[in-house]
Write a protein that binds this DNA or RNA. Sequence first.
DNA 1: ACCAGTTGTTAAACTGTTTTACTAAGGCTA
DNA 2: TAGCCTTAGTAAAACAGTTTAACAACTGGT
Lengths: 366, 366
Amino acid sequence: MDSDSAVVADNINAIEDREATPRAKPPDKINIRDVAGEAGVSVATVSMVINNNPRISRATHGRVQRVIDRLGYRPSRPAQTLSGKYTQVIAVLLPALRHALADAYFGELLSGIADRAGKLGHKIIIEQAKPQYVKDGKHIELYERKFIDGYLCLGFNDKHKMLTDLATRQFPAIMVDNRFAGNQLDWIHCDYRLGAEQAMNCLLQLGHRKIAMIFAAPESATARDVLEVYTRRMAEQGMDRVDAWMADGMFTPEGGAAAAEKLAGAHPDLSAILCGNDKMALGAMHYLAQKGISVPNDVSIIGFDDIQHLPFIHPSLTTVHLPLYELGTAAVDRLIEKVRGKAGSVTEVLPTHLILRGSTSIVRNR
Amino acid sequence: MDSDSAVVADNINAIEDREATPRAKPPDKINIRDVAGEAGVSVATVSMVINNNPRISRATHGRVQRVIDRLGYRPSRPAQTLSGKYTQVIAVLLPALRHALADAYFGELLSGIADRAGKLGHKIIIEQAKPQYVKDGKHIELYERKFIDGYLCLGFNDKHKMLTDLATRQFPAIMVDNRFAGNQLDWIHCDYRLGAEQAMNCLLQLGHRKIAMIFAAPESATARDVLEVYTRRMAEQGMDRVDAWMADGMFTPEGGAAAAEKLAGAHPDLSAILCGNDKMALGAMHYLAQKGISVPNDVSIIGFDDIQHLPFIHPSLTTVHLPLYELGTAAVDRLIEKVRGKAGSVTEVLPTHLILRGSTSIVRNR
DNA sequence: ACCAGTTGTTAAACTGTTTTACTAAGGCTA
DNA sequence: TAGCCTTAGTAAAACAGTTTAACAACTGGT
């Protein structure tokens, strides 16, 4: 009977299956061997077709590619990584700031990074380096367990000692928009010096001399670049004791407002304020408006960043444009080159430019 | 002598190594076999130690663990993934909005997702579903090439047809803070109906009847939930033709301002505006302030989201708090359960609550 | 006709882990 | 004391690719 022979067949199959593939695999999950069998070539050939190896002839390539398409075969990334050298994943490390993932500055950098990485067939993993995270050595695991090929470090400064972990181990890593103490790490950042010169040129040419500065995070090298230019340009104008003309605005609008209050209180005759970023400039403008001090008629304001989508700011903000998106794309390029061993040490600077808008005007005697 | 026998042993090892591994491997890269050899156990035992398998005795576990620590061994994730079932990575898909990565709403969701995923030993990959990305089928590759275990979809609505690709293939995926056409996908979202009821209760109890609404994205199910409650509650008050009381604010402050202008023009007697999110509420308030219309004396405003860090908003905004952070953590939990096969279909709602601040007050005859 | 060189393809080794089936030893019951 | 569970550990197969040495089939030169 059919059922009998079926049983026998089943038993035979069961034995053979036991020998060949103990657990039956779902037939829809096809691998490189299936493709090779179907195309009548070896797995090596299929692998070479996938990777566009020129050793394969056009004819074979086409034939195999057709089988791949027909079967809907997709190479397993974990297998490729295990066998090959790279993960095609890069980590984006952020500091433990509460709203880092909702920030215009990081958002612009991340857009550039994500777009470029995607275009180059890389994925990005985003991690926030919270204290416990660092204590557990998760940032080291990331590379050592072969999750990633390398790191992009955003928003860190000299205080973040965990970066030395990456430096001493020689992991491929690039600091984005900053430098790290003693150049232990490769870096690429906007030309904050140039930006500061552009801003100071603008204010000085408009006749301003009593220029205050709202800075933030002096533990960051690029922030110090700006401070240094500001200090020098002021000294050139005979203003030697600038310390009383500077206040920390903590990178936030509220901090900017508080700093503006402090500065305006100490120097009622100030005619311009240079701000370390747009958010602090926004806060300063808000404070001045409340006090009935007109921007730009009484006080001129310049920011840094040129963040998009500042809603309803009046007057519009004159600012130093930082090419953050381009910085993100360039950082990805440099990191991948570094991973591939094609790059020596990376130290690169991207030019800024001033965007003249409504918050600056010629100085007026007050 | 000891040194002699050591030399002999070395030679034997050298020969065996030559046979086993033709190319010399860098000695710093140690694997499970090295650990097994050093500890005098099989690789299986080491594997079981790593994974805390109870089959291993306390004594052996301790001995092997010590070797692991001494050698600084870290299991290779790609190898674990290849051999095992899971990648321990989840994809966060975002729509192709220009500043999605700099948005307070997404930022809060992402924080919850990132924190919870990290705590559970998972990594997150963030991808924006741009047209070309979808056309290339990258969103499908992500799962089929075993980059990830599953998807969290943020900010999508019924218009995003690419989600059906995930649904038809039965990939583990959860829509976060929305539903998808015909419930093809699992979802978890804030209780927008409840939020709308809370907001309407508030306004009605304050005596408001001429309540306008600034909505956005009616192609989104949760947005429709709010509209539906608004329409019903208005109808209960005898207000049947509400269409003229509604305007699309596009989720942006500018859109909110424009919508407020349109509504205030059509209904100079309106006494309150319900806004689909805080950003549009902000825009509406800005427009009203410019027109000399006082909030809340002349017009009450209620928003949705309770986004943090709205700088210098006066009066402070009464709003429906959405538990976005918690939603993010819950979404991760549900997705991982689903990946592990521990969950059936996921349809979950998280309660909202009203935060009463300064932008609402009792109605006043105008 | 023979040898060298080029081209295209293959077999086999290798990547680093998990898992399953098996074994040996020890303890318990009948 | 034989028989049967447990317990703790091992050997080997599987996972799904890449890489390389070797080889076969041509081509061209002498």
